[in-house]
Nucleic acid binder design. Structure first.
Length: 489
RNA sequence: GGUCUCGUGGCCGAGCGGUUAGGCAGUGGUCUGCAAAACCAUCUACACCAGUUCGAAUCUGGUCGAGACCUCCA
């Protein structure tokens, strides 16, 4: 039952039963960042979506090889194939080596991934590390007649390809529409047709990133690296390819064409596209000036932010929507997520202190089944979270005595809540540092003293303790029998 | 202009033919020395107009509105 996983496949536009090529192995490729600037929250959402997919596939027993590339060359700024390389441009601007740019923002990217508890992929290859393989693939494509050389550059011949294959199936375009919608070439272009895209670009002598090739000293086109690296590490046909919605066309479309042009095989069985994070209904993007970095988010130091939010609050916020839908950012929504997440975390703590009784009114098995069902339905995290809140309600009801649970159900409830919260949704467990024991002891003492003063009806003292602790973000929860505390970040 | 997606209650956001989504906020209770938390109950919905159906937020057509892609973007 756990493995009846359905995935919304962008290629067929249908929800399909997931059947890997060679179970229990699964190959998954996700387009990673171009490391020329800081990632913003919109980027984080995409990688978080695939983090969930990666985690859940493993959770239900698959052995996943997850490849996520680092683009460190070939991604051009601005107009089509005529722009400047993003990395090289940044290097010139900052007057440093291109590889310093790459290193800096790769480090930054990994730091952000860690901050949000997004797991590392199995392989994180970079484009510059695969120049030879890229040249080899270009040679294959030329040999098959789908690419041509022009003035030291090599272009993919889209029209030629389309005469024997369909170009545009993934993004639902047909080539006639594309032709009628593109601008005329200015006559200076090396390309035969405006739809053609670069596989190799000849570099000017002043260009900072250059490699030898049979055609010229130059650099590879952006789309090529993904075709090459996915093939190298996952094979000519593999299970899942993911990326942001905005990469569907032209990037993913070109990938498919390149793979088929080189090896003759359609590369991917399941295409998965994550949707955009929006701000006031508009896509978060650097050009809109509405993107903020994770650092700004945590500190709240941005004009769109009323306050700072913890990474796990943001994670919770994002997972409350489905990866395939746009998600609109707002302070109100973040604050709601903050409270909701806190409620979940508290319940996860409470469940460990519950006492079973002989009677039982809880069906933990059913809850478990519902959690699996939610995730099996195209990784529906908002539904999963809704079910976890059913669990929260149960936990709190048992805690305050209005429901009863037996040992068997309590054990399972605890397990389900923890596994789905931490392993599937990836919420970080509260870590106790080395002073944990000391703090536990101290708090026990403080709470005991407060209890004394309350019994003596010495409200001044008990309230003072509570208020002062509150200033340290330590919150006291009084219930009938006992008082508990927790430290909020 | 072309292709596509979406319009759900105060906010975010699931559902996609018949059942309470869920979280946050609001209201009324219970508990409490007070507060918070928690529990119980409860109020706000499916852009608009037609059609299909015993029955539509969910299907079809139209209207209006928003967005994405078509150029780099997660």
């Amino acid at each position: 039952m756990e493995k009846q996983l359905y995935i919304q496949n962008s290629l067929t536009r249908e929800k399909e039963l997931f059947t890997p090529i060679s179970a229990p192995n699964v190959g998954m490729y996700v387009c990673g960042p171009t490391v020329y600037s800081d990632v913003h929250l919109g980027n984080v959402r995409t990688f978080l979506s695939f983090d969930i997919i990666f985690r859940y596939l493993k959770f239900i027993g698959y052995k996943v090889r997850y490849v996520r590339n680092i683009t460190d060359v070939g991604h051009l700024v601005g107009e089509g194939d005529e722009g400047e390389d993003k990395i090289a441009r940044k290097a010139k601007l900052d007057n440093i080596e291109p590889m310093e740019v790459v290193q800096k923002y790769t480090n930054g990217f990994r730091g952000v991934m860690r901050l949000f508890n997004i797991q590392d992929p199995s392989i994180e290859p970079s484009a510059t590390g695969h120049i030879i393989e890229q040249i080899e693939m270009i040679e294959e494509i030329i040999k098959n007649g789908f690419a041509y050389e022009s003035n030291g550059s090599v272009y993919f011949d889209v029209k030629k390809y389309n005469s024997t294959h369909d170009y545009g199936t993934l993004s639902g375009r047909n080539i006639e529409d594309l032709i009628s919608n593109t601008r005329e070439l200015d006559g200076q272009s090396e390309k035969r047709d405006s739809l053609d895209f670069a596989l190799w670009k000849r570099a000017d002598p002043h260009h900072l990133m250059r490699w030898n090739s049979p055609w010229s000293i130059g650099f590879p086109g952006w789309h090529l690296e993904c075709s090459v690296m996915s093939t190298k590490y996952l094979g000519e046909t593999f299970d899942i390819h993911g990326g942001g919605m905005d990469l569907k066309f032209p990037h993913h479309e070109c990938e498919i064409a390149q793979n088929i042009g080189a090896g003759g095989k359609s590369p991917v069985n399941y295409w998965i596209h994550g949707n955009m994070l929006t701000v006031n209904g508009r896509k978060m993007a650097k050009s809109e000036g509405n993107g903020f970095t994770p650092e700004e988010l945590v500190t709240g130091n941005h004009k769109l932010l009323e306050k700072g939010y913890s990474p796990m609050t943001v994670r919770f916020f994002m997972l409350q929507s489905h990866y395939g839908s746009t998600l609109d950012f707002s302070n109100e929504a973040l604050q709601a997520a903050e409270k909701g997440y806190k409620k979940l975390v508290n319940a996860l703590k409470t469940v460990t202190s519950l006492h079973p009784s002989d009677e039982n009114e809880v069906n933990a098995e059913e809850l478990q089944a519902k959690c699996y069902a939610a995730m099996n339905d195209d990784f529906n995290t908002p539904i999963l979270i809704a079910h976890l809140f059913e669990g929260v309600k149960i936990i709190n009801s048992v805690y305050d005595g209005s429901a009863k649970i037996d040992d068997k159900n309590l054990t399972l409830l605890n397990k389900v809540m923890n596994l789905f919260s931490h392993e599937v949704l990836g919420f970080v467990k509260e870590t106790s540092n080395s002073n944990g024991h000391v703090i536990e002891g101290l708090m026990e003492l403080v709470i005991d003293l407060r209890k004394q003063s309350r019994e003596d009806k010495n409200w001044g003292v008990s309230d003072k303790i509570r208020d002062q602790l509150a200033q340290l973000n330590i919150k006291i929860n009084d219930s009938k029998e006992e008082s508990t505390w927790n430290h909020e970040e």
